[in-house]
Amino acid sequence: MSQSLEHSLTSWSGQALKHQNSWIDGIDARVRVVCSTLFALVVVSSHSFTPTLLGLFCAFLLVKASKLNIKRTLRRVVAMDLFMLTLICILPFTTPGDAMFTVFSLTASWQGLLHALLITVKANAVLLVLFSLVATMSASTLGHALAHLKVPDKLVHLMLFMVRYLDVISQEYKKMRRAMQARAFVLRTNRHTWKSIGYLFGMLLIRSVERAERISDAMKCRGFCGRYYLNDEMKIRSIDWIFAIVFISFLILLIGLNIDGLFK
């Protein structure tokens, strides 16, 4: 079981989530990054259910609009929700409040359950918006957008390098794993497994450091003087303005709902 999980996750080619083209792809990358960050800020700092549920609803709309592959998206969200399930199990017992039911003289409270549900809704809303607005662009576009948003240059460079080499390293890793499997190595809970995985990891480190040296030599050969140049001109067009204005007015509505909730 653990093996199938492992392989579904290591195969990442640094590409955007699989999806059909939609109007969201036409919107400027910077606008999408800024909008989803603001969305996360507003939703996470909300106190009541109305704005967060509205946010979740908006997230669903965006997922629909960006034509994400529903099955893949769900798989990612479910992975997180399994974690949330433990939270939903624990929080009712640890939060004082009106009793819902009692198990072994432990009382589950409604307040705790609501709190756990609120966290679940928030986390899901933020993730879905991220998936539909940001994960639909390729990772290198994201890097360029961040660079245009004045994120430190070195950080962006690091990200671009990582995006490029994740796939290479994961192939290297799979190759070594296949070689181990060919020699009938099976993962178990024992010291032999841990030792072998440790050796695998050490070898992976050595090979990748050697690869890094080759990369950097090859890049210097081609006149790399320490930095990439971002040649793409990102221009804000009218559709970007419209999207940004609509999105931000929606966020202001959410903030307004929060303030109303505070005074009740």
Binding site: S2, Q3, L5, E6, L9, T10, K154, H157, L158, L160, F161, M162, R164, Y165, L166, V168, I169, S170, Y173, L187, R188, T189, T193, W194, I197, F201, L204, L205, S208, V209, R211, A212, E213, I215, S216, M219, G226
Partner: peptide, 21 residues
């Protein structure tokens, strides 16, 4: 940069090595 980027990728991959327990 190349060294750090490649090493960071190795650790990214490491977090997907699931060991049975």
């Amino acid at each position: 940069l190349p060294l750090v980027g490649v090493l960071a990728s190795v650790f990214f991959i490491a977090s997907y090595i699931h060991l049975p327990l």
